[in-house]
Amino acid sequence: MTERQKRRLILLTVLVFGIGSATALMLYAFQQNLLFFLTPTQVAAGQAPEARAFRLGGMVQDGSVERQEGIAVQFRVTDFAQEVLVEYDGILPDLFREGQGVVVRGQFRQNVFYADEVLAKHDENYMPLEVKDALEAAKTLTTE
């Protein structure tokens, strides 16, 4: 092999090895969950950090929203296995409603989550209202 060929071979080996191992590490990382928020189940299992703000994600439980005096509001966030009681004193976003996804930021003290920010998580479906109604009608028909 000439010096030039040898260099190319070394370069190629390094590239393949480097990119390969980086990809392997990334794939490994994707298999682990890189979570932006904790679920109510994790909070119930005691994984919530103490004295420290974190995010809680889940669905707003149907029929759990209770308005208090002023703009304060209380609701439950559920992942259909566990639920967490959330208290919030502020203006709720437009998309906040029961049965919808929500991400709340705040602190967890004595089994109550005191939120200082409520973010609505909108789903990735876009459709006209009539279609939505038709879908709902179809659903109730089949379930009846």
């Binding site: 437009d94 998309l95 909108h122 789903d123 876009y126 459709m127 006209p128 209202l129 009539e130 279609v131 939505k132 109604d133």
Partner: peptide, 9 residues
């Protein structure tokens, strides 16, 4: 048409 959830926005 307007969106079923987000309206005109």
């Amino acid at each position: 048409p307007a969106d079923y959830q987000q309206g005109e926005g």
